[in-house]
Amino acid sequence: MTTNAERRRPGRPPGTSDNRDRILETARELFARNGIDKTSIRAIAAGAGVDPALVHHYFGTKQQLFAAAIRAPIDPMTVIRPLRDVPVERIGHVLPTLLLPIWDSEMGKGFIATLRSLLAGSDVTLIRSFLQEVIAAEIGPRIDSPRGTGRLRVQYVASQLLGVVMARYILELEPFASLPVEQIAETIGPTLQRYLTGELPGSV
């Protein structure tokens, strides 16, 4: 006679679905309350009542867990990480060539749906935390000239890109919504680059 224990798939912990849901719920709550930087995997595990190793097993890094918590269809670091190898004077031009094809893809539909949900709900703090603690931390130090302007520069870039998302994918304004991605990238690239490395009025 085969027992329940013998039928269970090896290496699969009991209560997998419940554990995963608790981890995501706890992560979402802690990320929104404390931000990404001040939320540790250990704290999430403690809140969910699981071992930290199980969090890593299900979700990998903290950034990947964040993506899962906000139901993002792609780990944002897969877009941000390649920018490490891009010269500072080219980041503004390269960034839209990375983002726009993703946003235009089937995967991008999931991203737009996630963004709609976050903006319509009470999870705006999650977007703010990601922009300020992940993107600003990744790119900000490279463009922090004059000193202290790095975070503001990233926010200018974010405002431009969120405007593209709003006009092209949410409001679907024509003819902008139907323009080739290459045309949009070529048009906004110089503006993004100016935000990143150009002179900012009011900066010292």
Rank of each mutant, 00 (worst) to 15 (best):
S145H: 15
G150C: 08
G140Q: 09
L119P: 06
Q132P: 11
T125A: 15
L119Q: 10
L119I: 09
F130T: 00
I112Q: 03
A136N: 03
L115A: 00
L118R: 01
S122F: 08
G110H: 03
L126C: 07
I102N: 09
L115T: 02
S105I: 03
I112L: 02
Q155R: 04
R128P: 11
A120D: 08
A137P: 09
P141W: 03
G108T: 05
S145Y: 13
L115H: 02
I102H: 00
R128F: 10
G108R: 06
I102C: 06
S117T: 11
T114K: 04
L131H: 13
S122E: 12
R116A: 03
Q155T: 14
P146I: 02
A136M: 07
P101D: 00
I143E: 01
I102E: 00
R151S: 07
L119S: 02
T125V: 15
Q132H: 15
I127G: 01
G110K: 06
E106H: 08
S145D: 13
E138Q: 13
L152V: 14
V124I: 15
E106W: 12
W103M: 13
P146T: 01
L115D: 03
V124E: 15
K109P: 05
E133C: 00
P146M: 04
R116K: 10
G110E: 07
G148K: 12
W103Q: 03
G148P: 15
I127N: 01
I135Q: 05
G150R: 06
D144G: 02
T125W: 14
Q155S: 07
P146V: 07
D144H: 00
I127Q: 12
G148R: 12
S122T: 13
T149R: 09
T114I: 05
S105P: 13
K109E: 13
V154W: 07
S129A: 15
K109H: 14
R128A: 14
L126N: 03
L131M: 12
I143G: 05
E133Q: 10
L118G: 00
E138S: 11
E133R: 05
G148F: 14
G121C: 14
I135G: 05
L119C: 04
L100D: 01
D144A: 06
R153T: 06
E138Y: 12
G150E: 01
T125I: 14
L126S: 01
R142I: 14
